[in-house]
Simulated assay, not measured.
Amino acid sequence: MKILVTGAQGFVGRNLVSQLHNIQEGKARNYGISGESLTVYEYDLDSDPSELDIYCKQADFVFNLAGVNRPKDEAEFMKGNFGFASTLLDTLKKYNNTCPVMISSSIQAAQDNPYGESKRAGERLLFDYSKETGAKVLVYRFPNVFGKWCRPNYNSAVATFCNNIAHDIPIRVNDPSVVMNLVYIDDVVDELISALKGKEHYVEEYCTVPVVHTITLGDIAELIKSFKQMSDTLAVPDLSDAFTKKLYSTYLSYLPKDKFCYPLKMNVDDRGSFTEIIRTADRGQFSVNISKPGITKGQHWHHTKNEKFVVVSGHGLIQLRKIGTEEVVNFEVSGEKIEAVEMIPGYTHNIVNLSETEDLVTFMWCNECFDPEHPDTYFEKV
């Protein structure tokens, strides 16, 4: 299969091409396409126009993602959105190539403005081409698309907000109550690859991305602002919400390189250190504990609080004893064999570094963040 992608260096094009290359190289699974027989032709503004002839002659499927969103002159809307589509279809007809053709339109095609008119003209052109040639055509009216690699300060509020907030640049929200309908770039790419296999989704005559998120502009801005604070608070977003998960990944893709890494507070004493990594409102706390050689930590128990210990480096012993009994349950642990040990409520417990030379490094999860006002922690040796 030979696939032509026009606008290959644009936002949607770049994401689609990268995934098609993943399929080619066997890095992408569950797409039902053989990468061994996949060829991707990439065409963009800086391509040699003669390449379009070669690609249109050989293509088995065309994704026309080329277009103009914010030109200096409004006349460029029609040239970029209608004009190139016309050239593309004429070139396909030149070689009697009636392969399927997809075109990226916009929900603004329903609007009476220069951009909408140019998109609507491109749609009509494609439908007429289908009637004339019998070729299958797929017209996607995309709502707002967001995700990594989208150009900020251009035509995407999400990209602009993510970029500016990540770079400490003020944002302006003229009307926070404006309702946005958005599709995530990965969902767009998944749909386009489904279309490649003849499994596109429709709403009447137009193709559509089935996963759409609806949220106000103000709520988007507040969510992104909350992401900015998380390296300080050690919080993470509510990833059970699909839109929040996607928006957080999008925000991270705009971080400047000097914010890829941030310090954590190490609580250090002569026994070693204890460092919180993540604190969540409903999923507990994640930490790293380092014990010096020969050191015993813990020697306490909890009513309700419970923990999971995973030794990732060193050699140690975890001991538990039920309060009011004498039996001690022992677990010898090592970074050579990764396993989780439960700290059971009502059992006093400890962790002992058995090595005389190496630190014992333990990853710990607790079902609640530490609250000094209600620690639920009571000293008692195992």
Rank of each mutant, 00 (worst) to 15 (best):
F63M: 09
G147D: 05
G10P: 13
E222G: 00
Y347S: 07
L88V: 01
K228H: 11
K297P: 09
Q108R: 13
D112I: 02
N155E: 13
R29S: 12
K322S: 06
Y206V: 00
L196G: 02
V288N: 05
Q285P: 03
Y248Q: 02
E356Y: 07
S106V: 02
D232K: 13
A121G: 06
V139Y: 13
L317A: 01
T39V: 15
K246F: 00
F84I: 04
S105A: 12
R271F: 09
V310Y: 04
Y251M: 07
A109C: 04
H21R: 14
N330G: 00
Y31Q: 08
H349M: 06
V382M: 09
A8G: 08
S47Q: 07
D53P: 03
V312Q: 01
I193P: 01
P49C: 06
M102K: 03
G83Q: 08
K265E: 13
E358W: 00
V352L: 14
F63D: 02
K2F: 03
M364D: 01
V236G: 05
S156Q: 12
A221C: 09
C207H: 14
E358A: 10
I344H: 09
T280K: 03
L247G: 04
D46Y: 13
G198P: 08
K197C: 11
V310I: 15
K305W: 10
